[in-house]
Design a protein around this nucleic acid. Structure first.
Lengths: 149, 149
DNA sequence: TGACAATATATGTATATACATTAATATTGT
DNA sequence: ACAATATTAATGTATATACATATATTGTCA
Protein backbone atom coordinates (compact mmCIF):
# COMPACT_ATOMS: atom_id res chain seq x y z
CA UNK A 1 0.00 0.00 0.00
CA UNK A 2 1.18 3.48 -0.79
CA UNK A 3 2.41 5.30 2.27
CA UNK A 4 -0.04 8.18 1.92
CA UNK A 5 -2.97 5.76 1.98
CA UNK A 6 -1.54 3.64 4.78
CA UNK A 7 -1.32 6.53 7.19
CA UNK A 8 -4.04 8.64 5.55
CA UNK A 9 -1.85 11.63 4.92
CA UNK A 10 -2.37 13.63 1.78
CA UNK A 11 1.16 14.70 0.90
CA UNK A 12 4.59 15.31 2.30
CA UNK A 13 6.47 18.58 2.16
CA UNK A 14 9.77 17.15 1.02
CA UNK A 15 11.27 13.92 -0.22
CA UNK A 16 13.26 13.77 3.05
CA UNK A 17 10.16 13.94 5.17
CA UNK A 18 8.48 11.23 3.16
CA UNK A 19 11.57 9.05 3.37
CA UNK A 20 11.95 9.32 7.14
CA UNK A 21 8.30 8.50 7.69
CA UNK A 22 8.44 5.73 5.09
CA UNK A 23 11.39 4.17 6.90
CA UNK A 24 9.65 4.31 10.27
CA UNK A 25 6.46 2.86 8.81
CA UNK A 26 8.33 0.11 6.97
CA UNK A 27 10.22 -0.75 10.16
CA UNK A 28 6.96 -1.37 11.96
CA UNK A 29 5.60 -3.38 9.07
CA UNK A 30 8.72 -5.52 8.96
CA UNK A 31 8.71 -6.09 12.69
CA UNK A 32 5.10 -7.34 12.52
CA UNK A 33 5.92 -9.68 9.65
CA UNK A 34 8.94 -11.08 11.46
CA UNK A 35 7.16 -11.65 14.74
CA UNK A 36 4.28 -13.31 12.96
CA UNK A 37 6.73 -15.70 11.32
CA UNK A 38 8.56 -16.62 14.51
CA UNK A 39 5.51 -16.93 16.69
CA UNK A 40 4.82 -20.53 15.68
CA UNK A 41 8.24 -21.48 17.06
CA UNK A 42 7.58 -19.87 20.40
CA UNK A 43 10.40 -17.35 20.10
CA UNK A 44 10.73 -13.70 19.17
CA UNK A 45 12.80 -12.47 16.24
CA UNK A 46 15.34 -11.09 18.71
CA UNK A 47 15.69 -14.46 20.39
CA UNK A 48 16.17 -16.05 16.97
CA UNK A 49 18.94 -13.57 16.31
CA UNK A 50 20.73 -14.69 19.48
CA UNK A 51 20.35 -18.35 18.57
CA UNK A 52 21.88 -17.70 15.14
CA UNK A 53 24.84 -15.90 16.65
CA UNK A 54 25.40 -18.85 18.96
CA UNK A 55 25.28 -21.27 16.04
CA UNK A 56 27.84 -19.13 14.24
CA UNK A 57 30.25 -19.70 17.13
CA UNK A 58 29.87 -23.48 17.34
CA UNK A 59 31.51 -25.55 18.63
CA UNK A 60 32.65 -22.76 20.92
CA UNK A 61 30.49 -20.96 23.45
CA UNK A 62 29.97 -17.20 23.28
CA UNK A 63 30.10 -14.62 26.02
CA UNK A 64 27.20 -12.26 26.64
CA UNK A 65 29.40 -9.42 25.40
CA UNK A 66 30.14 -11.14 22.12
CA UNK A 67 26.45 -11.76 21.57
CA UNK A 68 25.59 -8.16 22.33
CA UNK A 69 28.27 -6.97 19.92
CA UNK A 70 26.89 -9.08 17.07
CA UNK A 71 23.23 -8.36 17.65
CA UNK A 72 21.38 -6.44 14.99
CA UNK A 73 20.35 -3.86 17.52
CA UNK A 74 23.40 -3.08 19.58
CA UNK A 75 21.54 -1.40 22.38
CA UNK A 76 19.34 -4.29 23.29
CA UNK A 77 19.92 -6.28 26.37
CA UNK A 78 21.49 -9.62 25.62
CA UNK A 79 21.49 -10.65 29.25
CA UNK A 80 17.73 -10.82 29.56
CA UNK A 81 17.23 -12.45 26.17
CA UNK A 82 19.65 -15.16 27.20
CA UNK A 83 17.72 -15.70 30.40
CA UNK A 84 14.53 -16.22 28.39
CA UNK A 85 16.24 -18.66 26.04
CA UNK A 86 17.60 -20.58 29.00
CA UNK A 87 14.11 -20.92 30.43
CA UNK A 88 13.08 -22.41 27.09
CA UNK A 89 16.06 -24.80 27.31
CA UNK A 90 17.36 -23.62 23.95
CA UNK A 91 20.73 -22.57 25.39
CA UNK A 92 22.80 -23.28 28.47
CA UNK A 93 24.91 -20.97 30.52
CA UNK A 94 28.03 -21.81 32.49
CA UNK A 95 30.74 -19.87 34.24
CA UNK A 96 33.74 -19.16 32.05
CA UNK A 97 36.82 -20.72 33.60
CA UNK A 98 39.26 -18.24 32.04
CA UNK A 99 37.45 -15.14 33.28
CA UNK A 100 34.97 -15.62 36.03
CA UNK A 101 33.19 -12.39 35.17
CA UNK A 102 32.08 -13.93 31.89
CA UNK A 103 29.57 -16.66 31.20
CA UNK A 104 29.84 -19.24 28.45
CA UNK A 105 26.63 -19.40 26.48
CA UNK A 106 26.11 -22.46 24.31
CA UNK A 107 23.28 -23.78 22.15
CA UNK A 108 21.61 -26.94 23.41
CA UNK A 109 20.71 -29.78 21.06
CA UNK A 110 17.15 -28.54 21.34
CA UNK A 111 18.21 -25.06 20.28
CA UNK A 112 20.16 -26.39 17.33
CA UNK A 113 17.21 -28.50 16.22
CA UNK A 114 14.93 -25.49 16.34
CA UNK A 115 17.32 -23.51 14.16
CA UNK A 116 17.46 -26.35 11.66
CA UNK A 117 13.69 -26.49 11.58
CA UNK A 118 13.52 -22.75 10.91
CA UNK A 119 16.18 -23.05 8.19
CA UNK A 120 13.76 -25.22 6.27
CA UNK A 121 11.35 -22.33 6.17
CA UNK A 122 13.87 -19.64 5.25
CA UNK A 123 12.20 -19.29 1.90
CA UNK A 124 8.99 -18.34 3.61
CA UNK A 125 10.74 -15.81 5.84
CA UNK A 126 12.52 -14.22 2.92
CA UNK A 127 9.40 -14.16 0.80
CA UNK A 128 8.47 -10.85 2.36
CA UNK A 129 10.73 -9.29 -0.27
CA UNK A 130 9.24 -11.25 -3.16
CA UNK A 131 7.62 -8.11 -4.46
CA UNK A 132 11.05 -6.94 -5.60
CA UNK A 133 13.08 -8.45 -8.40
CA UNK A 134 16.75 -9.26 -7.94
CA UNK A 135 18.02 -5.93 -9.21
CA UNK A 136 15.65 -4.04 -6.97
CA UNK A 137 16.79 -6.09 -3.98
CA UNK A 138 20.39 -5.24 -4.77
CA UNK A 139 19.57 -1.57 -5.16
CA UNK A 140 17.64 -1.53 -1.90
CA UNK A 141 20.51 -3.26 -0.10
CA UNK A 142 22.93 -0.66 -1.41
CA UNK A 143 20.72 2.29 -0.57
CA UNK A 144 20.20 1.07 2.99
CA UNK A 145 23.96 0.66 3.43
CA UNK A 146 24.53 4.14 2.08
CA UNK A 147 21.77 5.64 4.20
CA UNK A 148 23.47 4.58 7.43
CA UNK A 149 26.80 6.11 6.53
CA UNK B 1 29.09 1.01 7.84
CA UNK B 2 28.71 -2.00 5.62
CA UNK B 3 26.26 -4.49 7.05
CA UNK B 4 28.77 -7.35 7.11
CA UNK B 5 31.13 -5.31 9.29
CA UNK B 6 28.40 -3.97 11.51
CA UNK B 7 27.23 -7.40 12.58
CA UNK B 8 30.56 -9.16 11.91
CA UNK B 9 29.15 -11.66 9.48
CA UNK B 10 31.29 -12.71 6.53
CA UNK B 11 28.71 -13.19 3.81
CA UNK B 12 25.06 -13.91 3.16
CA UNK B 13 23.74 -16.85 1.21
CA UNK B 14 21.30 -14.92 -0.92
CA UNK B 15 20.37 -11.36 -1.75
CA UNK B 16 17.04 -11.98 0.03
CA UNK B 17 18.75 -13.00 3.25
CA UNK B 18 20.98 -9.95 3.16
CA UNK B 19 18.01 -7.70 2.47
CA UNK B 20 15.89 -8.99 5.34
CA UNK B 21 18.76 -8.64 7.78
CA UNK B 22 19.67 -5.25 6.35
CA UNK B 23 16.10 -4.06 6.87
CA UNK B 24 16.02 -5.28 10.46
CA UNK B 25 19.38 -3.71 11.19
CA UNK B 26 18.44 -0.41 9.55
CA UNK B 27 15.20 -0.37 11.54
CA UNK B 28 17.12 -0.54 14.78
CA UNK B 29 19.56 2.10 13.62
CA UNK B 30 16.72 4.42 12.64
CA UNK B 31 14.88 3.91 15.89
CA UNK B 32 18.02 4.87 17.84
CA UNK B 33 18.52 7.99 15.74
CA UNK B 34 14.92 9.04 16.19
CA UNK B 35 14.82 8.52 19.91
CA UNK B 36 18.07 10.40 20.32
CA UNK B 37 16.57 13.32 18.44
CA UNK B 38 13.34 13.43 20.46
CA UNK B 39 14.92 12.88 23.83
CA UNK B 40 15.73 16.54 24.35
CA UNK B 41 12.01 17.32 24.10
CA UNK B 42 11.08 14.77 26.75
CA UNK B 43 8.97 12.67 24.40
CA UNK B 44 9.42 9.45 22.43
CA UNK B 45 9.15 9.28 18.66
CA UNK B 46 5.85 7.43 19.08
CA UNK B 47 4.46 10.19 21.25
CA UNK B 48 5.57 12.72 18.63
CA UNK B 49 3.68 10.74 16.04
CA UNK B 50 0.50 11.01 18.12
CA UNK B 51 0.96 14.76 18.58
CA UNK B 52 1.34 15.23 14.82
CA UNK B 53 -1.81 13.29 14.12
CA UNK B 54 -3.66 15.49 16.59
CA UNK B 55 -2.35 18.63 14.92
CA UNK B 56 -3.52 17.25 11.59
CA UNK B 57 -7.08 17.14 12.95
CA UNK B 58 -7.14 20.66 14.38
CA UNK B 59 -9.36 22.40 15.24
CA UNK B 60 -11.23 19.15 15.78
CA UNK B 61 -10.44 16.55 18.41
CA UNK B 62 -9.62 12.98 17.46
CA UNK B 63 -10.84 9.72 18.93
CA UNK B 64 -8.41 7.08 20.17
CA UNK B 65 -9.48 4.88 17.26
CA UNK B 66 -8.69 7.54 14.70
CA UNK B 67 -5.26 8.04 16.20
CA UNK B 68 -4.56 4.32 16.23
CA UNK B 69 -5.65 4.06 12.60
CA UNK B 70 -3.25 6.79 11.52
CA UNK B 71 -0.29 5.68 13.58
CA UNK B 72 2.78 4.50 11.74
CA UNK B 73 2.70 1.22 13.59
CA UNK B 74 -0.88 0.10 13.64
CA UNK B 75 -0.44 -2.43 16.40
CA UNK B 76 0.77 -0.07 19.04
CA UNK B 77 -1.42 0.99 21.83
CA UNK B 78 -2.72 4.49 21.37
CA UNK B 79 -4.59 4.44 24.65
CA UNK B 80 -1.47 4.26 26.78
CA UNK B 81 0.47 6.74 24.70
CA UNK B 82 -2.36 9.20 25.14
CA UNK B 83 -2.27 8.65 28.89
CA UNK B 84 1.46 9.52 28.92
CA UNK B 85 0.90 12.63 26.83
CA UNK B 86 -1.87 13.69 29.16
CA UNK B 87 0.45 13.38 32.14
CA UNK B 88 2.84 15.69 30.31
CA UNK B 89 -0.06 18.12 29.72
CA UNK B 90 0.52 18.02 25.95
CA UNK B 91 -3.02 16.85 25.23
CA UNK B 92 -6.37 16.79 26.97
CA UNK B 93 -9.03 14.14 26.97
CA UNK B 94 -12.76 14.59 27.32
CA UNK B 95 -15.80 12.44 26.86
CA UNK B 96 -17.28 12.61 23.38
CA UNK B 97 -20.84 13.86 23.57
CA UNK B 98 -21.96 12.15 20.36
CA UNK B 99 -20.74 8.69 21.37
CA UNK B 100 -20.00 8.15 25.01
CA UNK B 101 -17.76 5.18 24.26
CA UNK B 102 -15.31 7.52 22.57
CA UNK B 103 -13.06 10.17 24.03
CA UNK B 104 -12.16 13.45 22.36
CA UNK B 105 -8.42 13.94 22.35
CA UNK B 106 -7.15 17.44 21.69
CA UNK B 107 -3.77 19.14 21.66
CA UNK B 108 -3.18 21.67 24.41
CA UNK B 109 -1.49 24.99 23.73
CA UNK B 110 1.59 23.48 25.32
CA UNK B 111 1.45 20.51 22.92
CA UNK B 112 1.08 22.78 19.93
CA UNK B 113 4.01 24.91 21.04
CA UNK B 114 6.19 21.85 21.39
CA UNK B 115 5.32 20.75 17.86
CA UNK B 116 6.18 24.18 16.55
CA UNK B 117 9.48 24.07 18.34
CA UNK B 118 10.26 20.68 16.80
CA UNK B 119 9.24 21.93 13.36
CA UNK B 120 12.11 24.38 13.55
CA UNK B 121 14.50 21.46 13.81
CA UNK B 122 12.94 19.35 11.08
CA UNK B 123 16.04 19.85 9.02
CA UNK B 124 18.09 18.20 11.71
CA UNK B 125 15.70 15.29 12.00
CA UNK B 126 15.65 14.75 8.26
CA UNK B 127 19.40 15.05 8.00
CA UNK B 128 19.73 11.36 8.78
CA UNK B 129 19.12 10.81 5.09
CA UNK B 130 21.66 13.38 3.95
CA UNK B 131 23.95 10.62 2.78
CA UNK B 132 21.58 10.10 -0.16
CA UNK B 133 21.05 12.47 -3.05
CA UNK B 134 17.57 13.40 -4.20
CA UNK B 135 17.33 10.65 -6.80
CA UNK B 136 18.46 8.06 -4.34
CA UNK B 137 15.86 9.25 -1.84
CA UNK B 138 13.16 8.92 -4.48
CA UNK B 139 14.35 5.46 -5.45
CA UNK B 140 14.46 4.35 -1.82
CA UNK B 141 10.97 5.72 -1.22
CA UNK B 142 9.67 3.80 -4.22
CA UNK B 143 11.42 0.57 -3.29
CA UNK B 144 10.06 0.68 0.25
CA UNK B 145 6.53 1.22 -1.08
CA UNK B 146 6.95 -1.68 -3.46
CA UNK B 147 8.47 -3.91 -0.80
CA UNK B 148 5.37 -3.71 1.37
CA UNK B 149 2.98 -4.67 -1.43
C1' DT C 1 51.19 -5.28 47.26
C1' DG C 2 47.29 -2.40 47.48
C1' DA C 3 44.44 1.18 45.75
C1' DC C 4 42.06 2.43 41.77
C1' DA C 5 40.30 1.91 37.22
C1' DA C 6 38.31 -1.06 33.70
C1' DT C 7 35.41 -4.86 32.31
C1' DA C 8 31.50 -8.37 32.27
C1' DT C 9 27.19 -9.22 33.56
C1' DA C 10 22.94 -8.51 35.98
C1' DT C 11 19.16 -5.71 37.53
C1' DG C 12 15.89 -1.72 38.40
C1' DT C 13 12.84 1.57 36.20
C1' DA C 14 10.55 3.71 32.38
C1' DT C 15 8.68 3.25 27.86
C1' DA C 16 6.75 0.72 23.98
C1' DT C 17 4.73 -3.39 21.54
C1' DA C 18 1.68 -7.75 21.08
C1' DC C 19 -2.17 -9.90 22.27
C1' DA C 20 -6.19 -11.18 25.07
C1' DT C 21 -9.83 -9.70 27.88
C1' DT C 22 -13.11 -6.53 30.08
C1' DA C 23 -16.51 -2.86 30.55
C1' DA C 24 -19.38 0.49 28.74
C1' DT C 25 -22.07 1.95 25.12
C1' DA C 26 -24.19 1.71 20.55
C1' DT C 27 -26.33 -0.84 16.75
C1' DT C 28 -29.00 -4.34 14.69
C1' DG C 29 -32.60 -7.66 13.85
C1' DT C 30 -36.73 -9.63 15.06
C1' DA D 1 -38.69 -2.99 22.92
C1' DC D 2 -35.25 -6.00 23.79
C1' DA D 3 -31.84 -9.55 23.18
C1' DA D 4 -27.80 -10.41 20.63
C1' DT D 5 -23.89 -8.46 18.44
C1' DA D 6 -20.49 -4.96 17.42
C1' DT D 7 -17.65 -1.14 18.61
C1' DT D 8 -14.62 1.82 21.59
C1' DA D 9 -11.42 2.31 24.92
C1' DA D 10 -8.95 0.68 28.88
C1' DT D 11 -6.29 -2.78 31.18
C1' DG D 12 -3.57 -7.09 32.38
C1' DT D 13 0.41 -9.82 31.11
C1' DA D 14 4.47 -10.94 28.50
C1' DT D 15 8.30 -9.36 25.85
C1' DA D 16 11.71 -6.01 24.27
C1' DT D 17 14.39 -1.54 24.39
C1' DA D 18 16.92 2.51 26.75
C1' DC D 19 19.44 3.96 30.24
C1' DA D 20 21.41 4.08 34.84
C1' DT D 21 23.32 1.62 38.46
C1' DA D 22 25.11 -2.39 41.15
C1' DT D 23 28.22 -6.31 41.86
C1' DA D 24 31.92 -9.25 41.03
C1' DT D 25 36.17 -9.89 38.93
C1' DT D 26 40.32 -8.59 36.51
C1' DG D 27 43.98 -5.43 35.15
C1' DT D 28 47.16 -1.56 36.06
C1' DC D 29 50.47 1.11 38.13
C1' DA D 30 52.58 3.71 41.83
Amino acid sequence: MKLEDAIKQKAFKTEEERLVINLVYTSGWLSSEQNRFFKRFGISSQQYNVLRILRGQLPNPASVGLIQERMLDKMSNASRLIEKLKQKKLIKRSECSKDRRQVDVLLTQEGLSLLNEIDGLNGEMHSICNTLDLNEKKTLNNLLDKLRN
